[in-house]
């Protein structure tokens, strides 16, 4: 990591005094250092801060408040103040706690996201390893090839699997050509949990490759040579050297796949059958169809809590350690 000076720089010396608020370089630029910290700072960080407060933080707070209000008579929210007192209730939370159906949906979403993460790991590892061990001049191109599909439209990537798994597709016909003579009912690949999982893995795969590659690229090949000299075969070299060293990358990738996969609604909507209802579908339903906003807010808050807890956990597990 390159030493990053904040105010001014004194090459070669990292400045422990920085944390105490006394910049080591402060004395070098007495005329403008102090002034920069004042108005300039707010001129630069003020507008994006204000924008995100209004269009991200306040809506999030509104959602928290909404989760404590009763539903409105015609959907939406009931007025926050009625007859001069606050109209607050724990109704929506009690409804979530009291009905196991919702917990099943949460559990199912966690299972789907978990399977997705594992499949992505298995598919991404060889990709990341190959790119990391390629000659330096090809690495950027090979990584660009991994990332490009991620930047194409999400729905198009899901739609592609509608074609591949559809009843008239070559794949479906091939599967049924095998299954039917054996006396089984014809299989429908589309509108199934299988299709949902394929879609989830396909959409999230690049998120796993990126952190894995960033980690594997830094491995010192001498370690593998040393292992080989000591008599380790390829399998042992992987499981005892490469894989343990790559764990921070694995955890980072797992978080990047698991968290977005947890909230997805469009993939079950498009590729799934009737039982493939995940948290995302439930939230969408509460906001757009049932219009029970307090309950939708409660579900969203629980999802946020799970996502943030997992992101924190992943950051903690993959934190840089001195002894690694």
């Amino acid at each position: 990591m390159r030493w990053k000076p904040r105010g001014g720089s004194m090459p070669g010396t990292s400045s422990p005094a920085e944390g105490a608020g006394v910049s080591a370089s402060g004395a070098r630029h007495p005329s403008w250092q102090a002034r920069d910290r004042g108005t300039g700072r707010w001129l630069v960080s003020g507008p994006p801060l204000a924008y995100l407060l209004v269009f991200f933080a306040i809506p999030a707070l509104i959602m928290v408040v909404a989760s404590f209000t009763p539903p409105g008579e015609y959907g939406g929210l009931a007025p926050l103040f009625e007859d001069g007192k606050a109209n607050l209730t724990l109704e929506a939370y009690e409804r979530l706690a009291g009905d196991p159906i919702y917990w099943e949906v949460f559990a199912k979403s966690v299972v789907y996201a978990g399977i997705t993460t594992l499949c992505c790991l298995v598919l991404a590892y060889p990709l990341a390893m190959l790119v990391a061990r390629s000659p330096r001049k090809y690495r950027d191109l090979l990584m660009l090839l991994v990332i490009l599909p991620f930047w194409s439209n999400f729905l198009i990537r899901v739609y592609a699997w509608m074609i591949i798994l559809g009843p008239q597709s070559a794949l479906s016909r091939a599967v049924n050509a095998v299954v039917e003579p054996l006396g089984f009912e014809p299989v429908s690949l589309l509108f199934s949990s299988f299709a949902v999982l394929v879609g989830l893995v396909y959409v999230h795969l690049p998120f796993m490759v990126l952190p894995l590659y960033a980690n594997l690229e830094k491995h010192d090949p001498a370690l593998l040579d040393a292992a080989q000299d000591l008599g380790a075969n390829a399998w042992q070299r992987f499981w005892r050297v490469t894989f343990p060293l790559s764990l921070p990358g694995v955890w980072a990738g797992a978080a990047l796949v698991f968290i977005p996969a947890l909230g997805i609604f469009a993939i079950p909507d498009i590729l799934g059958g009737t039982e493939d209802t995940l948290i995302g579908n439930l939230i969408k339903q509460q906001f757009l169809e049932t219009r029970d906003w307090p309950f939708g807010s409660v579900l969203s808050i629980v999802l946020t809590a799970i996502a943030l807890a997992l992101a924190g956990l992943a950051a903690w597990v993959s934190r840089p350690r001195r002894t690694a």
């Binding site: 991200f56 809506p59 977005p260 909230g263 997805i264 995302g280 906003w293 996502a307 943030l308």
Partner: peptide
């Protein structure tokens, strides 16, 4: 945070807003 959490959360909170 908007990048780290599932997109749907930002969608529904902005709808409310």
């Amino acid at each position: 945070t908007p990048i780290a959490i599932p997109e749907i959360l930002m969608g529904v909170s902005l709808l409310l807003f």
